[in-house]
Design a protein around this nucleic acid. Structure first.
Length: 571
RNA sequence: CGGGACGUGGCGCAGCCUGGUUAGCGCGCCUGCUUUGGGAGCAGGAAGCCGGCGGUUCGAAUCCGCCCGUCCCGACCA
């Protein structure tokens, strides 16, 4: 391919709108352009990267026995009413009406559509198991699109849905996908980790997320240093510390004046105690009323755990006014004693003896509060986020916290959608049974960004060979030198004939410009042909990211490059 | 939605506080000449309803109000 003929609008400077590395570099490398917030154009090179990802995904999905289909982007509201998600899904679901006033949405996911398709077409156990996937544009009206392709509103996703006769079959399929996903991300050249995950609003019983490890990742994960336990922080269960419920201390409640002392840190400093002696009382509003959550001062509440415990979909910290109504005090002085709300306490709180809490009175706290004696706890549960100081819930080994970008998520759905939409089949005995479902997503466009978050330097992108838009950048020094020109044009044709993907920089630019652009684009191999090397019958080859050139005789160039590329593709 | 920042040729920015006559700089773009191993030099040139609407004023990029858009931090998720 000729650089001069492709639309590759590289940028010298960082666009003001981009903060994240991948966002910046995708823009600078001329691979994407923004149309609106969270909505992007893919330019020729960006599209090539996307196609590389898609190809790997297709090959591995097909290999795992899945079949590709393509479902509509626009979906009728009726299906979403059937699954009850029209109400549940929230504002993220882009809704609109067609000319007849019929409610529609732009699909953020396709459980309803696939289940509808399958309930109409699959009626016998003989047709099972079935795994259907598509690679398609999705739209989720994200609260806050950010980081370019990492959290866009419109994005490209591979989603697969499996249908099995029974739970055993569904689990076998889940494992098949688990393995396929490992192959996909490995082939993409990504450094990733599989973690246990919360299944979120899509529902279902258990799930795993595939996380590309990157410091800029939006997700936090806990990973054990001794066993293979790893989980999303939202999910990671806190191991119950040895010990039993506390016994009431003999001391009576003590009201202390704490003027303008609100935060845990302020209270700890003021009373000369540690945050672990304090309990914070968080007032939440849910779709089923207000509740109080008790968390030890040095811990962080895990709202996903709270949501799951309460079985609610909305969970929002109460506002200033609401807190005053419910506690009778300003924010910072709430406490469980005498509070007329359901109280949910974290395990660690139930173990405390003499804790310090707000007094539900402005500028006062209570000391010597005992959870068993002084309050009515509705339920004790694991409600906090795990920390690096906690032991591994599986082996009690040491944990470390990592950041990751979620690029894949597999769910065991069970019967949720097949029951809601009445998708059933007849078994060998002629009995009607619901289909066991699973669903499996991959953020195709996000992978492109994740790969860059993981592979870049000061000069630009460092793509894994498997994802690079082209494998080789071919740079002539002084195209007006007839010998150079002839050599480079011959090389270009020969390399392409040998099946290599080559970008010949035929622009009338100075060498420095071409080097800079070649680095920026992240092409894995750079081949430079200049008069000096040519005199020795050689070309200079540089692996992206490597410090030095290697002189390769022209006749060895093709085998050398093919060998190098093959090596990297089969890691 | 809450908090913060920003909106000036294609891109990055200055000018605004302290209103004033042709709105500047760098990069990019076009033409010519000279250059050609890490984002060249010289000369010439094109390109801006200063995000929009309204107000204050003799006069608004500049002051005030409203709106729109974008980005960053938090609540959602591939």
């Amino acid at each position: 391919m000729l650089f001069s003929r492709l639309l590759i609008p590289t940028l010298k400077e960082n666009p003001a709108e981009a903060e994240a590395v991948s966002h910046r570099l995708l823009l600078r490398a001329g691979m994407i352009r923004k149309l609106a917030s969270g909505i992007y154009n893919y330019l020729p090179l960006g599209l090539r990267v996307l196609r590389k990802v898609e190809r790997i995904v297709r090959e591995e999905m097909d290999r795992a026995g899945a079949q590709e289909v393509l479902m509509p982007a626009v979906q009728p509201a009726e299906l979403w009413h059937e699954s009850r998600r029209w109400q549940v899904y929230g504002k993220e679901l882009l809704r609109f009406q067609d000319r007849h006033g019929r409610d529609c949405c732009f699909g953020p996911t396709h459980e309803e559509v696939i289940t509808d398709l399958v309930r109409k077409e699959v009626h016998s156990y003989r047709q099972l198991p079935l795994n259907l996937y598509q690679i398609q544009v999705k739209f989720r009206d994200e609260i806050r699109p950010r980081f370019g392709l990492i959290r866009g509103r419109e994005f490209i996703m591979k989603d697969a849905y499996s249908f099995d006769a029974d739970e055993t079959g569904a689990e076998a399929c889940y494992r098949l996908m688990y393995d396929a996903y490992n192959r996909i991300f490995t082939r993409c050249g990504l450094v990733f980790k599989v973690v246990e995950a919360d299944s979120g609003p899509i529902g279902g019983s258990f799930s795993h997320e595939f996380m590309v490890l990157a410091d800029t990742g939006e997700d936090l994960l806990a990973s054990c240093t001794s066993c293979d336990y790893a989980a999303n922080l939202e999910k990671a269960a806190v191991a119950l510390e040895p010990g039993s419920a506390s016994k009431p201390a003999g001391d009576a409640l003590e009201l202390v004046h704490t003027p303008k002392v609100r935060t845990v840190e302020e209270v700890a400093a003021f009373l000369k105690v540690t945050p672990a002696d304090i309990v914070k009382t968080l007032i939440y509003e849910t779709d089923e009323g207000s509740v109080a959550v008790l968390i030890r001062g040095d811990h962080e509440v895990n709202e996903v755990k709270v949501k799951n415990l309460l079985g609610v979909t909305d969970l929002i910290l109460a506002g200033l006014i609401r807190v005053q109504e419910l506690t009778g005090a300003e924010v910072g002085f709430a406490g469980p004693v005498g509070l007329k709300l359901p109280i949910y306490a974290d395990q660690a709180v139930a173990r405390m003896n003499a804790m310090i809490t707000g007094a539900n009175r402005d500028n006062y706290h209570l000391k010597q509060v005992h959870p068993g004696r002084d309050m009515k706890i509705t339920e004790v549960a694991d409600l906090r986020s795990i920390t690096a100081q906690d032991p591994c819930p599986r082996c009690r080994g040491a944990l470390m916290l990592l950041r990751g970008i979620e690029v894949g998520h597999i769910f065991k759905l069970g019967l949720k959608y097949s029951k809601a939409l009445k998708a059933a089949y007849l078994d060998a005995e002629g009995k009607e049974q619901y289909l066991y479902m699973g669903c499996y997503g991959i953020g195709v466009s996000r992978i492109m960004a994740a790969a860059i978050e993981q592979g870049h330097d000061a000069n630009g992108i460092i793509f894994p060979v498997a994802l690079a838009p082209l494998q080789v950048g071919l740079i002539p020094i002084a195209l007006n030198d007839p010998a150079v020109r002839e050599c480079v044009e011959g090389l270009h044709a020969d390399l392409e004939a040998a099946g290599l993907e080559v970008l010949l920089d035929d622009r009338d630019e100075r060498p420095g410009v071409k080097f800079k652009d070649c680095d920026l684009l992240g092409l894995p191999f750079r081949v430079v042909v200049g008069a000096k090397a040519l005199a020795q019958g050689a070309a200079e080859v540089r692996h992206r990211g490597a410090p030095d050139n290697l002189m390769v005789p022209l006749q060895d160039l093709i085998p050398y490059l093919k060998d190098q590329i093959a090596q990297e593709l089969h890691v």
